[in-house]
Amino acid sequence: MGSIREARQYVKRLLEIAEQGGDVEAVGRELRELREVMESSAVVSQQVEYERQGIKQAVVETTVPLTGEQQQRLSAAIQKLLGGPVAIQQQTNPEIIGGLRITVDDVVIDNSLRGQLARMLQVVHQAPAPAEAVEEDE
């Protein structure tokens, strides 16, 4: 149970089962357990707290850890962009090769090397095949 979103999905499914004439008592028990798990997880309770205060959470992915000063500048920039308080969660992810990728809710601001390569590949795929580069063998 890594995030509030997953928990929400889970609860929704449980309620659906209850609605279809499932064991309401069992569903209730399950929900109480879920709450305990959620509250015991530091990450999740932090998320709940942010959501309550209306603070958006941005996940920033880079290949190397950001310095304190870089983080502050980035945080100021993102706050300006979204127009509200933002909590930054930093992750290192070697898969993006270089640059950085910022995820806020459903929106991804992709400035990673990997993303650029993927888009270049798309350009090449869409262009007609270079016929002159292929020579027929006798």
Binding site: V107, N111, V124
Partner: peptide
């Protein structure tokens, strides 16, 4: 020739900050 063709195709590629919505 292949490299030349690729170079030509990518000449039009312009790097922009990509903002996407994902699920």
């Amino acid at each position: 020739k292949l490299i030349a063709a690729l170079r030509q195709q990518l000449a039009e590629y312009e790097h922009k900050l990509q903002v996407e919505e994902i699920g």
